[in-house]
Amino acid sequence: MTAAEAPVVGERRLTIAEALREAIAEEMRHDEKVFLIGEDIGVPGGFGGAFGVYLGLTEEFGHDRIIDTPISEKALAGAAIGAALMGMRPIPDLQYADFLFECMDELVNQAAKMRYMSNGKLSVPLVLRCPVGTANRGAQHGQCPESYFVHVPGLKVVCVSDAYHAKGLLKSAVRDDDPVLFFEHKLLYGSKGREQAGGMDLTAHVPEEEYFFPIGKAVVKREGMSVTVVATHMSLYRSLAAAEELAQDGIDCEVIDPLTLLPFDEETIFASVRKTGRLVIAHEDTLTGGWGAELAARVAEECLYSLQAPIRRVASHDVPLPVAPVMEQTVVPSQARIKAAIQRCCEG
């Protein structure tokens, strides 16, 4: 099922925001221990969360289970962690992933380590929703900081890019006994990012019946023989668009959405690289120390003799994010940069 596929007439298609809302509602109905906690999530007449994902949920579940907090990220993260330690299953919301740095101690020193320090006696089952991505919001409201957390044993890191997997993964994350950071791209919630995604339909088929998608499993979004392209979020759609263009030049791209960055589904990537002999990695997180570097290292360790060309990475340049669109587009991986990297990888 790829987003690049043409919609089938009559099938139910949802945006990511709608799919996330449906997943949360289902899980809250399923288990009374699931609750939402965050800033501006349930205030009457408010926003329903910074990106409207919670609209309508307060009416069904009430303020006992949709808890508005002060602007106090350490407290809300700590409250979620503590409640999870006591057997609840909180879904804290931070509005912007940039604000994760306000509660790094809670996430890295507490949430990630409580199971280990207690010798496995405690669990921290929570799902922290983190909107990422550039959208002309500048240096402090547009970062993709997922790689920081890929470095933290004890956390799980998910990046969703389409409605089907967003729903299935969020449901799995809520039922997971470990803390999960759930990164969603702001331009992919609705249809706003459609133009930047090469005009692709950003809705996806979401079945009416309940389903789960497992954490730790990548999906092949486009099969191909010439080169493996691993990409998340907007970079995934730009890679798919680039792949369509390159197909006309005889370059047959296999495009993979890893979906989970920690634990990483290495086997799907290794199998693809062994088939194509070439690897391009694209992400909106910055280049140095980004998760693409980790993936490149693992492929080099396990598949070096399958490679026919050097691995190429396309990432945001190593600068803070500017606001002016012309500069922002220079920093983040564009379709043109991804296309050029694939071409270069296929030259060797």
Binding site: R65, G78, A79, D105, N109
Partner: peptide, 19 residues
Amino acid sequence: IVGGGNTVVTGLGLAFKLM
């Protein structure tokens, strides 16, 4: 971590309240 418990403890209290 100095102060580390001061935020986590709120979750213990919140869970007791919710349950």
